[in-house]
């Protein structure tokens, strides 16, 4: 197909527009001056300081803890949910209801999602102090939106698997437990891993849900960056952002590799 060169130029300009912000942050993370935007020489200093800043290290630890724990829970729940939806003959009406439950976390605007969680935790707090804003409430919140994304990913894998191997296992007298362990789960593994990776990146990326459910001791990296934008950004934050960017890219590339096989 031949395209008008104008289309190509617009496309490249649009791409440049998407990369401009990241590029600016990356360049400034190597800038010697602490204040202002003028270039005054190259330095690695800010990256070094990053690793001796206790606030940033603490936030990094929280971010990964939050992402890892919530992904773990969401992957288990989401996978079970997908199997239930795809491999059991629910009556039509219940199926419709379940589909709505599945899509609800995907289509709810995240600010409403966050507000609903604030209200829920407010009510739960009357029962138990466990629900004071903090890492625990953040995990609960993240799992709630991750489940749907895991379930959708695993479900599309289940759909493409079809029923042949299920039937073969049954014909060969596999018990249900044996079938799940030795047939279904191994076949589903690429889908489960892809779903988990997606859930993990979503958690790392989330700002709004974290912002509304975080407590004073559970600062994550996005929250830290937001707070420092309000106080005035330092080159350390540029360095941190650049590292996060590189890390996310690596993570997603790795998950692509894993799921392609």
């Amino acid at each position: 197909m031949r395209l008008n060169p104008l289309i190509g130029i617009t496309a490249i300009a649009t791409l440049a527009f998407l990369y401009l912000p990241m590029l600016a942050v990356a360049v400034l993370s190597f800038n010697k001056t602490r204040y202002g935007l003028t270039w005054s020489g190259f330095t690695w200093d800010w990256y070094g300081r990053l690793f001796s800043n206790p606030e940033i290290l603490e936030a990094a630890r929280n971010t990964f803890l939050l992402a890892a724990l919530s992904t773990l829970v969401a992957t288990v729940l989401g996978t079970l949910f997908a199997i239930a939806l795809e491999r059991y003959p629910w009556p039509r009406k219940s199926q419709g209801f379940l589909e709505n439950i599945l899509y609800l976390p995907v289509v709810t605007p995240d600010i409403i999602f966050a507000v609903a969680l604030v209200v829920a935790f407010g009510a739960f707090r009357m029962v138990s102090s466990l629900f004071e804003p903090g890492l625990f409430t953040m995990i609960l919140g993240h799992v709630t939106f991750q489940i749907a994304f895991v379930a959708l990913t695993v479900r599309s894998r289940l759909k493409s698997l079809g029923h042949d191997l299920d039937e073969a296992a049954r014909d060969l007298y596999a018990s249900y437990g044996y079938y799940v362990r030795r047939v279904l789960l191994p076949l589903l593994m690429p889908g489960i891993v892809a779903g988990a990776m997606l859930a993990f990146t979503l958690s790392l990326d989330d700002f709004v849900i974290s912002f509304f459910t975080a407590g004073p001791t559970s600062q994550t990296l996005p929250l830290l960056i937001y707070a420092s934008v309000r106080r005035g950004v330092t080159p350390e934050i540029h360095a941190l952002s650049t590292l996060i960017f590189l890390l996310t890219v690596l993570l997603v590339l790795a998950s692509e590799r894993l799921t392609r096989r």
Binding site: G78, A84, R87, Y88, I101, L104, T108, A116, A120, T144
Partner: peptide, 26 residues
């Protein structure tokens, strides 16, 4: 259905409890 419920309930209860019911209580 009884077996399917074991797969279904954890996620559904989670989403109902933390998203649907709180949303309705808004």
């Amino acid at each position: 259905y009884r077996r399917g419920l074991w797969f279904l309930l954890p996620a559904v209860v989670w989403i109902l409890g933390l998203l649907v019911i709180p949303g309705l209580s808004l």
